[in-house]
Every structure is written in structure tokens, then in C-alpha cells.
């Protein structure tokens, strides 16, 4: 069952340079389409600045998308008014990257977790407390720690509190924006396992944004690879990791260390930096760094096509 369907979503941020000069745009998300099923996890990977966080924020309308369609449970939420939007927010939540910045430093954990329920007028105080207490138990925080402030917790605990806050309203979709990249490796696995357990228990769908290929491989059902605001490859996780089609995905995966010293892998080293999303290259945005690019790549913009069953890629040579 499809929970979320994104069609040609664009998020262009205007940057005005002076009064008379031409208005320019950062094309953070530039025509992204995908679907997400109920209970599924879609991983989104890409290097810094490829627009993966902007994508997450525009799906939740935390930043108003420039154009496109976001169908959530069959309704286009971009057409929603303020009241409808507030109502649908109960069903879609976000977990942030930085557990030190995502909790109000002057609120106790109790009031941080109660806030979502209060905002939506759910239950009386007693019922809310009951719900919060059962929730913190699931994430491994003791009841007597509820009246502590965020700075009294470790990074991993804070991130679990951030997850609990997203869960208070019992959502269907959680967008996790680099939820473990600020944590120690030992704590990362705890938090990832918590994500997996909660998914089973509440039948959650995740959009899991990360730049860490191993983390994404561990948690995702399907994976989308982003480059300069576009999805360049989208496939089932095993398909993508074992048989990458797009040259960008190949180069990314070649950077993954293999825990076996006898096995040698050919590294594909990309040259140059990520081009500016203000002036993206013509044709295929990747042609400036692509090891197999030809002159055709400069003129022809490749569309994301289904090259093998359930395996989509945007490259004219695959």
C-alpha cells in the first residue's frame, strides 16, 4: 500500500544578489519523484549539499516546495490549508540530526514530550503522562528522569528522546534526517536498532536520510542515491549495493571499506568538487566528474528510467 507519493518535487531557494541583478536560485531539490509504501524504509544517500535534507524538509512542508506534488495517504498535502496541515502533521514526523540542537534546552523532557499532545489537544494531563511514561520506557529512559533537562543526558539518550517526541502522535511516516551521524559509532547501532524495533511495533514508514552508506544499507528496504538535487539511482537495497548501475553510485560504493584484507576492490576516485547547485552543469549534472562521460552527456539530460525490474537509474549509458 502506497503511503507517500512524490511527483517532480522541486525546492528552489532564491538568492538575491543586489537590486538589479538577475534573480538566482539554489536548486536544492530539482524534480524528485518516488513512492514509499506503508512499513517500508527508503534510504536516501548522497554527499553533503546534494539536497537530501532539503528534500526531507520540503516533504514535511517545513520549507515550502517550489512545485511538484506530495501525495500523502492519497491527498496532495501541498494544497492543504493551515488547519488541514496541522492535522496531517500528526501522521508525519521528523527526527533531526543534532541531538544537542533539537531539544529545547530550557524545557524538561516531560514538557518536551507533552508538547505534541498539548498542541493537538490530546487527552487530559493524566492520560498524557501515562502515554509519555509508557513511551520513555520503550526508548530506554527511566521514568524518574522525566523532569531532567536535555543537558543532563548523553547524545544517544537525547536522540532517543527526539525519536520518542516524534512517536508521541503515533505517526505513519518518520523522516529521519541523518539521525545517527552525530553519535558515536557504539551508540549509532543502539539507535538504529531502536528505529528497527519501533518500525515493527508501530508499522512505521521511514525516509532515512544519511551520507553513511553502511548505515543506509543496514536499515533500508530501498535506497535512492541523490546527486545535485536529483535522484540518479533508485533500487532495492541488495540490488543497489551488489549491482550499481549509475557511475556515481559505483564510485560511492567503491569507497565502502570491505572488512576483508585479502579482497581487493577497484577504487573509483572522483575528481573535482560537487558543482554549484546555483549553476548546475548542462545535460547530465554528473558529467563534469563522471569517468565514462562523453560529449552527449553534456547536452542530453538523462531521465530516471527503470533499467531492470525495480531498478531505476538516470544515465544514458546503462
Amino acid at each position: 500500500m502506497t503511503l507517500l507519493e512524490i511527483k517532480n518535487l522541486k525546492q528552489h531557494f532564491p538568492i538575491s544578489k543586489g537590486f538589479l541583478s538577475e534573480k538566482k536560485y539554489v536548486k536544492a531539490v530539482d524534480g524528485v519523484s518516488f513512492t514509499l509504501n506503508k512499513g517500508e524504509t527508503l534510504g536516501i544517500v548522497g554527499e553533503s549539499g546534494c539536497g537530501k535534507s532539503s528534500l526531507g524538509r520540503s516533504i514535511l512542508r517545513l520549507a515550502e516546495p517550489t512545485s511538484g506534488e506530495i501525495k500523502f495517504k492519497g491527498q496532495d498535502i501541498l494544497k492543504f490549508n493551515r488547519k488541514q496541515m496541522k492535522n496531517i502533521r500528526k501522521d508525519m514526523q521528523i527526527v533531526f540530526q543534532d541531538p544537542y540542537a533539537s531539544l529545547n534546552p530550557r524545557s524538561t523532557i516531560r514538557s518536551i514530550l507533552e508538547a505534541p499532545l498539548k498542541i493537538h489537544g490530546i487527552g487530559n494531563r493524566e492520560e498524557r503522562m501515562k502515554l509519555i511514561e509508557s513511551l520513555v520506557e520503550k526508548i530506554g529512559i527511566r521514568k524518574d528522569q522525566l523532569d531532567n533537562y536535555p543537558h543532563e543526558f548523553s547524545g544517544g539518550q537525547r536522540q532517543r528522546i527526539g525519536i520518542a517526541r516524534a512517536l508521541t502522535l503515533n505517526p505513519d511516516l518518520i523522516i529521519a534526517d541523518e539521525p545517527v551521524s552525530a553519535l558515536d559509532v557504539s551508540v549509532q547501532s543502539q539507535v538504529l536498532n531502536l528505529f528497527v524495533e519501533l518500525q515493527k511495533e508501530f508499522n512505521l514508514s521511514y525516509i532515512f536520510i544519511s551520507h553513511d552508506l553502511s548505515v543506509v544499507q543496514h536499515i533500508s528496504d530501498r535506497v535512492a542515491v541523490m546527486y545535485l538535487g536529483k535522484i540518479v539511482e533508485l533500487a532495492h537495497v541488495d540490488q543497489l549495493y551488489q549491482n550499481p548501475l549509475h557511475p556515481y553510485t559505483k564510485s560511492l560504493l567503491s569507497a565502502l571499506p570491505i572488512p576483508d584484507p585479502s579482497q581487493k576492490r577497484e577504487r573509483i576516485i572522483l575528481e573535482g568538487d560537487l558543482p554549484s547547485p546555483i549553476n548546475p552543469p548542462t545535460g547530465c549534472a554528473f558529467h563534469t566528474r563522471c569517468p565514462v562521460a562523453t560529449s552527449d552527456c553534456r547536452t542530453e539530460t538523462p531521465a530516471l528510467r527503470e533499467k531492470q525490474f525495480g531498478h531505476w537509474a538516470a544515465c544514458i549509458y546503462v
Partner: peptide
Amino acid sequence: EFIESARALGANPFRILFKEILPN
């Protein structure tokens, strides 16, 4: 991020201003 999270939860600007921003 905690301000953004309040918006994601559906808090109105009044609440964000007085409960999240002003105390900080």
C-alpha cells in the same frame, strides 16, 4: 532544530514564540 521540530509538530507561531524562542 528544536524550533523546526515544534513547527513539524504543528505548533502555531504564538506557541513557538512564547514557549520555544523567548525562554531561550
